[in-house]
């Protein structure tokens, strides 16, 4: 009984810790805004920082299953939903910042139909929307056997987010290559452990 209580508190403490860590990028950004520490083009810096935070959290979310498999500790799963929701949270802020600070809400139609990198980013965001909506326990129950195939949309979301990032490169793609290696690694281990079909979204297996 006592150990069950301890475990419960441990779980809560762990969640608080992950919550706090996931808020750090936003915290740093807010501090930089307050201290006017973002240079002459703060809108650009903010938008980029939010986008990178979203992408990094997507990768961390994708790392949970391999972590569980490698360490044999299923406790990691406790944090997966929160991390995924934070990825969505940063992606939503990133989109808002882009609209407000970069685009000034001008030229919307051309931007979202003619610019391939924007289309890739928007598609990545759209793929994350149903995942966020169906992340609650109740929605999990309601979607039943469809929940898992639906949530495999995180794979195309991550790939599209990477493409969105790559297509903005002008000359040096070192950073993009590093992320590609990480993302490919996370997908390849899944394919090896669970089969390639485990990566196909919306397919019941």
């Amino acid at each position: 009984m006592a150990s069950a209580v301890t475990n419960k508190w441990r779980g809560i403490a762990g969640k608080c810790l992950v919550f706090g860590l996931a808020l750090l990028p936003l915290g740093f950004l807010v501090a930089d805004i307050i201290n006017a520490n973002l240079g002459p083009d703060p809108g650009q810096v903010i938008t980029e920082a939010l986008g990178i935070a979203a992408f990094q959290l997507l990768l961390v979310t994708l790392a949970i299953t391999p972590l569980k498999k490698v360490t044999g500790w299923s406790g990691w799963l406790r944090y997966r939903r929160m991390l995924g929701l934070f990825a969505f949270f940063y992606a939503a802020l990133h989109l808002l910042a882009f609209l407000q600070l970069i685009l000034g809400w001008m030229d919307l139609w051309a931007t979202f139909t003619k610019r391939p990198y924007i289309i890739a980013g928007a598609a990545a965001f759209l793929a994350m929307v149903p995942l966020a909506i169906t992340s609650t326990r109740r929605m999990m129950k309601r979607t039943g056997r469809w929940w898992k195939p639906l949530h495999r949309l995180i794979y195309p979301a991550a790939i599209l987010a990477w493409v969105h990032f790559l297509w903005q490169a002008r000359s040096d793609i070192t950073e993009m290559v590093v992320y590609a290696v990480i993302l490919a690694g996370l997908l390849v281990v899944r394919a090896r452990w669970f089969g390639v079909s485990s990566l196909v979204p919306l397919k019941r297996t």
Binding site: P40, D41, P42, L101, P116, Q168
Partner: peptide, 23 residues
Amino acid sequence: VDHPRWSQKMERRLPSGVFRPNW
């Protein structure tokens, strides 16, 4: 003439601010 990846109709005159994009 647009850049293929973005419009060239407007520009942000720097320094700009978070609440003052200076388009």
